[in-house]
Design a protein around this nucleic acid. Structure first.
Lengths: 132, 132, 132, 132
DNA sequence: GTGGTCTAGACCACG
DNA sequence: GTGGTCTAGACCACC
């Protein structure tokens, strides 16, 4: 069952030097995805800058840059001398507003997908596969 | 079947300034994808540099660079004073590449949706509703 | 007349090394204030990273960091090889929503001010003075 | 007159995690300001470390550090097992310092309001309306 | 020990 | 010439 497996997957970072995607963006992406699929939740602590730098064998500044961008975007919250934590999402929207926002971001996504030749069916199938 | 869908979907460009992918690469990729799934075929004319630049609100040099790189790779053919046309070179974007692109654009959508509190199920339901 | 003087004030950066406020934050602040009082508007180009670094006699990375934070926050838009520009504000809210937002940010401000012992009259006087 | 306002405004702490100012300094400053404008006077008891930590949802060590620094500066006096009390030291925050603080908290508010398209006039009108 | 700031300098990608 | 990325290393502030 997918549900029962959800929190059994550990947070595991990996960098691909050949991808052309900067390290700091790869880190951001992996954290965002972990939040999106509940491997990270509000209040969870991220690895320290230094420990993640050692683990990934990169410069601590590169990790710090990733964390800093996430902080600016309100996705994590860092407290000096303590660490970096997943921020509280303070989402208080009524249903109408929620639907309006969903419609808006979906429209952008569908347009973009179709520019690359993907149909509605393609994206729905893909999302369903992701969700398994 | 790809063949039966031919020309039923229009060529529509869209640029994402926030993706980090340079505009000229986004254009190249969208043209390649259009060729790969038969929305563009040998001999079809591309928009002129100037008109596409106006449409996308970018510098004509950027469009020119995209076309020029496509020409170097033998994918399009430019006729001075006439326009730019799809060459007869076969474009082979394998399934892995296609999926990589779909994954990338889907990621942004999913993380954005999740930042507003929408689950995977929410977005799938909404897309299915749109598609009815 | 205040109005006639508005756009006659030039953008002029200055850093105070003794303030304890990091250079990059001072730069961000000065740009934000310039936008808030219309010395900078949508589409205006900021000084280049290197030129501002020379002008302020600091490391270009420090300027880049300020610009990068502004970009993440959607306040400026940078295009590689071209420069950094004040972003379009795409504000499309109805009146009810606008008032709700104003109420919300004002409430936070008033609470904070009162924690420091400032009364409503104090902040109103101060704002009126700023606006002269 | 300051004297006539004494005790008519309550002591209310608030912390801004995004200000960049460490919590312990925000607490110190708010206490100093409260003494300076007579919301706190010689002999008044401060909240206990533990209760203030709970109220502000921060680590008790952070509150303790603020109180400890105030004690070193002779502004408060701690009696083991009893509590922390305002000492008889005069606090002199000159007008320039007061204005600096007001300027700082106002800045954040003004730039935030402006990012939503509100002008200085808008926010002043709104505050005046609130104050009626 | 934690994150924050800044510098110096190198190399790359974009227009 | 423009900004983007990354490194190495130093010093500081916070808890």
């Amino acid at each position: 069952m997918a549900a029962s497996r959800k929190n059994t997957r550990l947070l595991q970072f990996s960098l691909d030097p050949k991808s052309g995607v900067p390290y700091y963006k790869q880190i951001i992406l992996q954290i965002e995805m972990a939040i999106a699929d509940s491997r990270l939740s509000t209040g969870d602590q991220l690895p320290t800058v230094r420990s993640l730098a050692v683990e990934l064998q990169i410069n601590p500044n590169t990790v710090a840059r990733a964390y800093s961008e996430l902080e600016i975007r309100g996705i994590v919250h860092t407290q000096q001398g303590t660490g970096t934590f997943i921020a509280d999402k303070e989402i208080q929207l009524d249903e109408i507003e929620r639907e309006r926002i969903l419609a808006e971001i979906t429209r952008g996504f569908v347009t973009k997908a179709s520019s690359y030749g993907f149909s509605m069916e393609d994206v729905i199938s893909y999302l369903q596969e992701l969700n398994r």
